[in-house]
Amino acid sequence: MGLLTTVFLLLMFTGTTMLKESGIRCYSLIYEDVARSHPRPGQSNFTNTGYLNGQVFYQYDSKNQRAVPSPPWDKVKGMHDWEKESQFQKRREDFVLDNMQNILDYYNDGNGSHIFQGRFGCKLCGDNFIKGFWKCQYDGRDFIEFNTDEKPSWIPLDPAAHMIKQRWEASPGAVYRAKAYLEEECIGTLRRYIEYGKTHLRQLIPPTVKLSHNSSLEGNLTMKCLAHHFYPKEIELNWLWNGKVQEKKVGEIQPIGDGTYQTWITAEIPSSKKNSYSCHVVHESSFESLVVNWAKE
């Protein structure tokens, strides 16, 4: 049990998010586990994805059992020992799937497919550690999370989670090792990644903005403002009508796959007012807001 707990603590981190708060640049390292059960023996699978400032920098898949760095991180020499990471993730795969089987046994449910997700990491702003976190879900509902207070512990959020809590806290000092991992080892790894990847992490890529619309049966227009291929992730979009901010529906900020992001906003307006609307975009890559007018499209 002690070995399994140690493996669980070591294997759950690979990702980041870059924020700008009060002029201070922030970085994050996040790892995400996804285990999927299958009623047929040997068909369950496991993936682990690392995010550095919101960018995927590696992925592990139980099918090929290798941790594969993603562009541009595959070109950063000395950043990580990927062979060692592959071996580590294989041990983590065994541990996570074993815990998932325990959950299935608890609910006496070996039929169908189920999903266990774990997400954990740390955040650093300037020279100050901000926080570490570790949360898990089962079939989309909160399952268990780690409390990093002075007396750390796993907090069960599901009936089966009480059993998992007992397993993960069975080894003496396990919760303190988990706390130390989040607040010390994770931060140390993040600092090292920032140094190796500073060329990529500190780049500013301005968004490309495009306006489009669709007509509705009522004679109104559904307007869409799409911002894409920008970095870092944080961005704000608004509709302006005669200089005033209007109501909007906001799309999720999504990674494109090349290290940049895209998002959009929509609004329903009378077609006669189309040329009075503009899309207002605020992004770190520019000191001034970008304004795209319908009349210029």
Rank of each mutant, 00 (worst) to 15 (best):
E21S: 12
M100W: 00
L226V: 09
E183V: 05
G140V: 04
E297I: 14
G78P: 02
H228Y: 14
Q87R: 14
L217N: 15
S289Q: 08
A35E: 01
C122R: 09
I115V: 15
N214S: 15
K151S: 14
M100Y: 00
L10G: 07
V282A: 11
A160I: 01
H162M: 12
H38C: 06
D109M: 11
F57W: 12
L10N: 09
R192S: 15
R25Q: 13
D109N: 14
C136K: 02
G197D: 02
I269C: 01
D158F: 02
S278D: 03
I269A: 00
L97P: 03
G140E: 04
N64R: 13
L190F: 06
L10Y: 03
L10R: 05
K249W: 13
E218A: 15
I256R: 12
C125V: 06
W264E: 05
W264T: 00
H280Q: 08
V282G: 04
K249C: 10
P72T: 01
I187D: 06
N293I: 05
F46W: 00
W168S: 00
S171G: 07
E169S: 10
K135I: 13
S276C: 06
Q89S: 01
L124M: 07
E184G: 12
N128F: 13
G2W: 08
C186T: 04
E85F: 06
L124E: 02
E32T: 11
D61H: 14
S22I: 10
Y193G: 01
K249E: 14
E247C: 07
G121T: 00
V250Q: 08
K75A: 11
F133R: 04
Q137G: 08
T199W: 09
F88E: 15
R202E: 15
E288F: 11
H80T: 15
L19G: 14
F13I: 14
K131C: 13
M12H: 09
K274T: 04
V292H: 00
N275E: 07
T6R: 09
Q137P: 03
D61F: 11
L240A: 04
N128R: 15
G54R: 02
C186V: 06
G121C: 02
S276Q: 11
W134N: 11
E268S: 13
W168I: 00
S278T: 04
I164L: 09
L19R: 13
V245R: 10
W73V: 04
F57S: 02
I235M: 08
P152L: 00
G173C: 02
N275D: 08
I24G: 03
P207T: 03
I253K: 07
C225T: 03
P255G: 05
K198G: 12
L9K: 12
K151M: 12
K224H: 10
T14S: 13
L104T: 00
E218H: 13
I30A: 02
K131Y: 12
C186M: 06
K249D: 12
G2I: 10
K90V: 13
